[in-house]
């Protein structure tokens, strides 16, 4: 998006963090060593974006600049570099369809068509009722369950045209469809269930007893960590939670004991965190 286009939209006059967000912002800034507050620019921009209906007005960027005592242009640079920051208003449901090669090979074009048909808009547009914005995105890192879309903070994977339409319908009805694979796949496991490592080989006597327990522990720890950060309340850390969860998942994915929908579980924690 060119800066000119971003500037053309009607910009609100002013922006200021809400008292809760201000407190969160202060907590985030406190994590960085003195003199390095500018490092907090990403989480703060995210916070600002969440506060202003999922887009970043100029006033919000200016507010963050002032909050971190950095030149405004340095904040504009960051905000325009990351595609996750919307410089123009978006609909309530912000649908990003991954159209990069793996997803495209697995039928992302169908998702695009489904959206266009269903919503009557083309890519990059917003429905007149401001409910949906649909854009094309580059690889969102869930190629294994391609094709996929990101809607708000959630990933919906293993989609097809009708599935996409169903998703849009559900959103239009005000529901929050369960994120993750839409065909019941457990995380990134094979569709038909595990195909390898079906049996955990017997441990050799020489190995220390505690070793096998260590890995799941680590994974849990990571998930807990993520949840903990989420509790701190910042948006970007929500993304951090996602990553944490992914790691936890892939750590577990080989194990037959993996519980399905663990991702969704972590997600709902995330939701709780964001909503706090």
């Amino acid at each position: 998006m060119s800066s000119a286009a971003a500037i053309a939209v009607e910009q609100p006059e002013s922006f200021a963090f809400s008292p809760e967000n201000r407190a969160r912002a202060e907590r985030i800034v406190a994590k960085y060593p003195p003199g390095r507050q500018a490092s907090a620019v990403l989480p703060l921009l995210d916070l600002a974006q969440r506060q202003s209906d999922n887009w970043l007005p100029r006033a919000a960027m200016d507010h963050v600049a002032e909050f971190l005592s950095m030149p405004r242009i340095r904040v504009y640079e960051v905000a325009t570099f990351y595609t996750m920051f919307n410089k123009t208003p978006v609909g309530k449901h912000f649908v990003q369809i991954c159209t990069t090669t793996p997803c495209w090979l697995r039928g992302s074009a169908d998702l695009v068509h489904a959206c266009e048909r269903k919503l009557g808009i083309s890519m990059g547009e917003t429905t007149p009722d401001n409910q949906f914005t649909v854009i094309e995105a580059e690889c969102l890192g869930a190629c294994v369950n391609a094709p996929m879309v990101q809607i708000g903070d959630h990933y919906y994977e293993d989609l097809d045209g009708p599935g996409m339409e169903a998703l849009l319908d559900a959103l239009a009805r005000g529901e929050v469809p369960a994120p993750g694979s839409q065909i019941g796949r457990s995380t990134s496991c094979s569709v038909k269930g595990p195909t390898t490592l079906l049996h955990v080989p017997k441990r050799q006597a020489s190995e220390p007893e505690a070793a096998p327990a260590a890995e799941p522990d680590l994974a849990t720890a990571a998930a807990d960590d993520a949840a903990a950060t989420v509790d701190a309340g910042a948006g970007v850390e929500t993304a951090g939670a996602d990553i944490g969860t992914e790691t936890a998942d892939s750590g577990e994915s080989g194990s037959p004991k993996t519980k399905p929908r663990s991702r969704a579980r972590a997600k709902s924690k995330t939701d709780a965190g964001t909503a706090d």
Partner: peptide, 24 residues
């Protein structure tokens, strides 16, 4: 930024869309 001390210029956007300017 360094000599004139007026940090008003920057590079906004990324990749092929990067533009040098003042943004506003």
């Amino acid at each position: 930024e360094e000599i004139a001390g007026v940090p008003e210029l920057g590079a906004t956007g990324r990749g092929e869309h990067m533009e040098v300017g003042t943004y506003i």
